[in-house]
């Protein structure tokens, strides 16, 4: 019975996220269009609402080009890994607050639930970068792809550390690694008010970890064509996009759970609050895309290692000290 429920949940998660990815592209093009005083997609369907479906069908029928010098098995594996691990992270993200049933059991709206949710999500985020790394290696010595994935590797290593350090402060305060525990600890006041620096560091690191503007160095169009995706075509390239958008959803949900109190909030029901927060973060991504110029590579590394890392270590020391002596404001 439990297995059956888990399989049904899994199918629902995959379907919902697939539709989400399709419409995320539409939404992004629309928002970025209005930010640049254009209209965005308009022709296919009402306000371009059928555009993502047309794009999906188009990507199915595109010719699948594989370079002669490509490492064939890795070339096939790279897009699969790039799409699979973000989904693996997403199965631990709840879609709604847990439901307390009449017989004392708790129904969780996430496929996978454990005491170490946060660590699991971090682990899957770390593994997701292997898709990009493999893509660069498998492209058969294409310089653009290789440089792109080289940048991605350095960026991921730097910013995963910042991501984990920024998450450590709320974890210390909540004494828990599970999503429910962390949300429960924020019933009275969200952690963003206790840990503003950690929140800012987390937002910067989450944009860098998903390689979006202003930190989209791995696929910087003017320099690298399309970075690690240069040699991939059709559905394979689509899978990379899939992975990236699911990753954006995962980190947005993580940020809203850990720093903005998840499903806690006044007046409105929990589910509504939860999705408002997630969608606000997803909007923030598009907003930054329309606003910020890209950072240079040395600036990217300086931000991580010279600014954020020392600040986060100081922050953790301060949080630990405050918790140890029992200061009222943590």
């Amino acid at each position: 019975m439990e297995v059956l429920i888990a399989v049904i949940k899994l199918i629902i998660v995959v379907v919902v996220l697939s539709v989400y990815v399709m419409y995320a592209t539409w939404y992004e093009r629309k928002v970025i269009g209005h930010m640049q005083q254009r209209i965005g997609p308009k022709r296919v369907g009402w306000h371009g609402l059928l555009q993502p479906i047309a794009d999906t069908i188009k990507s199915f029928w595109k010719e699948d080009v594989i370079p002669d010098r490509a490492d064939k098995p890795l070339f096939w594996l790279a897009p699969v890994i790039a799409a699979a691990f973000p989904f693996a992270a997403a199965v631990a993200i709840p879609f709604a607050p847990p439901l307390h049933l009449a017989n004392g059991k708790v129904f969780y709206f996430s496929v996978f639930h454990s005491k170490i949710d946060i660590l699991y999500i971090l682990a899957m985020l770390g593994l997701a970068s292997f898709g990009v790394l493999m893509a660069g290696v498998a492209s058969g010595g294409s310089k653009y792809a290789f440089t792109g994935s080289q940048r991605e590797a350095a960026q991921i290593v730097s910013y995963e550390a910042i991501l984990a350090l920024a998450l450590l402060n709320p974890i210390l305060m909540a004494h828990s690694l599970s999503i429910e525990g962390i949300v429960e600890a924020q019933r009275h006041l969200w952690f963003v008010f206790y840990q503003p620096f950690a929140f800012v560091a987390f937002v910067i690191a989450m944009i860098a970890a998903t390689a979006r503007v202003p930190f989209d160095l791995p696929e910087a169009e003017p320099e690298l064509v399309a970075g690690h995706m240069t040699e991939f075509s059709g559905l394979k390239m689509g899978l990379f996009f899939f992975g990236q958008y699911v990753l954006i959803f995962v980190v947005s949900a993580l940020a809203s759970i850990v720093f903005l109190g998840g499903w806690t909030g006044p007046v409105l029901p929990g589910v509504v609050w939860y999705w408002i927060k997630i969608l606000a973060f997803i909007f923030m991504y598009t907003w930054f895309w329309g606003t910020f110029p890209r950072y240079r590579y040395d600036q990217l590394m300086d931000i991580a290692w010279k600014a954020l890392l020392p600040l986060m270590i100081l922050n953790i020391l301060w949080t630990g000290f405050a918790l140890a002596v029992g200061l009222p404001v943590f």
């Binding site: 682990a123 970068s129 790394l133 080289q150 590797a153 350095a154 290593v157």
Partner: peptide, 22 residues
């Protein structure tokens, strides 16, 4: 298990890949 993946697969293996790419 999670530390195994985060530290060894997520950090050390990526580092090895990075070194080989450089």
């Amino acid at each position: 298990a999670m530390l195994q993946i985060i530290v060894y697969a997520g950090a050390i293996a990526v580092m090895i890949m990075l070194v080989m790419m450089v």
